[in-house]
Amino acid sequence: MTDLLAAIGRIFLGFLTHTGRLSAFTATAVSHVVRPPFYPRLILRQMIEIGYFSLPVVGLTAIFSGMVLALQSYTGFARFSAEGAVATVVVLSMTRELGPVLAGLMVAGRIGASMAAEIGTMRVTEQIDALTTLSTNPFKYLVAPRILAGTLMLPFLVLIADIIGVFGGYIVGVYKLDFNSATYISRTWEFLEPLDVISGLTKAAVFGFLITLMGCYNGYYSRGGAQGVGAATTNAVVSAAIMILVFNYIITAMFFGK
């Protein structure tokens, strides 16, 4: 019985330690994002890494999601003769949900993992200590540029994913399901409101922040050689993915909840 209580207590304390450390890390990181000096070269390099080099994977995800969305909603809606709603469903789903969430998850796998691995390796090879001894704050030099770049670039990526996804739906709608091209396009625009896109881009910014934060945090505190870096990489991706899904709900509720 005492063993059980001790185990529960230990897990609870571990949880508190972790939460406290993450909160402190987040506060320090954000304070360095907004305070000078800034490192434009590093920010630019991270923006290219996150924004430009994620384009292929995000684009492919978006186009196939848009295509399958058109196909699925068509076969479903045909059961109650509502095929006309396909274009609207595609554009609303892409901008509000699938664009940000799928792009976020793909970028979490790509960027979150590589950040955790890179910073984790720097930690275990003492490169982070070396930064400190060279009068350079590792938060300023490593963490802040990544978080800033992630938060700025994800909305751009998602905007492109939205467009490509809608285009995927259009291809399936027009060439496979025999919709009239002009009708499909006008249906796409008809019910789309600015808030649909804005909510999606807000999600994207938050997801970008979370992905880079979890990548940096897990890398920064990785311990114990190759195995530790491996664990940090896994944790970075898993925790970012879960947080994306949780915050997706929270932000949706904030925008559209009653």
Binding site: M122, T125, E126, Q127, D129, A130, T132, T133, L134, S135, T136, Y141
Partner: peptide, 30 residues
């Protein structure tokens, strides 16, 4: 820290930077 220099056991060179950028790091960044 400006008074200090340190030679790390494993070198701890920044592998994303060239050799001269490593050596000049404290001068440029610090």
């Amino acid at each position: 820290m400006r008074k200090f220099g340190m030679l790390f056991q494993g070198g701890a060179l920044f592998d994303s930077l060239k050799v001269w950028e490593n050596v000049a790091f404290g001068l440029i960044q610090g």
